[in-house]
């Protein structure tokens, strides 16, 4: 049995409270991922973002990470030094964030920022790097890559900025891509486009994808499996195509609580927290 790309066993992320006790943002979760697309869905406080941060080694102080196993393609992430992390991030695991306005440096050109992972992780000539950057900009669907290459992030629209961020993340060829709410800051019309782009690129480059979102119905179309988190724990795991039929009360509510023209005049289903606690 091949080593899974991402192997997480009993991961707990805790933060100290003022009274000395510890609060578990992520409680003892386990998941594994191969070259497949997995969604991690939850609402505020579910711990999904902290899980992503733990995998990237980016849990802020004074948080503590503990796990029986946390490994990326065999590399033990719990034992990594800061230098080890620096070599890993960008080269073997990439992170796409929600808002390109905050993730891209406004004072550096697009070309330079997309090029940076190559400078850090690959040994290429200036010319080769430029070619790769242009190829990547084209692959993410940006019209006229040569012009975009010289632009500053402030000159890009939201959708373009997100494509640039994806380009920068994928250019060094990581094995695993973590996308944390990559479309939340975008207009409705762009969301599907960006998700289609992401899933296509991930398939082309044989990568694993961990897609983090609060929107259950959106991720169902773009992933193979879905893990549902609630208050730090994974409460449901389903094939994405079967989400609509999941018997778990939380998943069911999340799936059906969405407003639409069909629900006009009716009460939307809401969370029955007692039932969820009981089922967990």
């Amino acid at each position: 049995m091949a080593e899974p790309l991402l192997d997480v066993a009993n991961l707990t992320v805790s933060f100290p409270r003022d009274d000395g006790t510890w609060f578990d943002a992520v409680k003892d979760i386990s998941l594994s991922l191969g070259t497949e697309r997995v969604a991690l869905v939850g609402e505020s406080g579910s711990g999904k973002t902290m899980t992503a941060r733990a995998i990237m080694g980016l849990v802020p102080n004074p948080g503590r990470v503990a796990a029986d196993r946390l490994a990326l393609d065999g590399t033990d992430l719990l034992a990594l030094s800061p230098r080890g992390w620096a070599r890993l991030r960008g080269a073997r695991v990439g992170l796409v964030l929600q808002d390109p306005r905050f993730a891209l440096n406004p004072l550096i050109t697009v070309g330079r920022q997309v090029e940076e992972p190559l400078l850090l992780h690959a040994h290429l000539s200036h010319h080769e790097r430029r070619e790769r950057v242009l190829a990547m900009l084209e692959a993410v669907g940006l019209p006229d890559p040569r012009t975009v290459h010289g632009l500053y992030p402030g000159e890009l629209s939201g959708g373009m900025g997100q494509r640039v961020m994806i380009a920068a993340t994928l250019i060094a060829g990581p094995q695993l891509l973590i996308a944390d709410e990559p479309t939340s800051a975008l207009d409705e019309a762009l969301r599907r486009q960006i998700l289609e782009l992401l899933t296509r690129l991930v398939a082309d480059q044989h990568m694993g994808l961990l897609l983090i979102s609060h929107d259950l119905q959106q991720v169902a179309d773009f992933t193979d499996r879905t893990l549902v988190m609630y208050r730090g724990a994974i409460v449901d795991a389903q094939a994405s195509a079967a989400l609509a039929r999941s018997p778990h009360p939380y998943t069911h509510t999340l799936w059906t609580c969405r407003p639409s023209a069909a629900t006009f005049g009716t009460r939307l289903p809401t969370l029955d927290r007692a039932a969820i606690e009981a089922a967990t």
């Binding site: 992320v13 933060f15 409270r17 003022d18 609060f23 943002a25 505020s44 406080g45 711990g47 902290m50 802020p60 102080n61 004074p62 948080g63």
Partner: peptide, 15 residues
């Protein structure tokens, strides 16, 4: 409260 909020909350200010 999410973990991020807890990490940043002032709590007992003098402490």
């Amino acid at each position: 409260m999410t973990a991020i909020e807890i990490a940043a909350a002032p709590g007992s200010r003098l402490l």
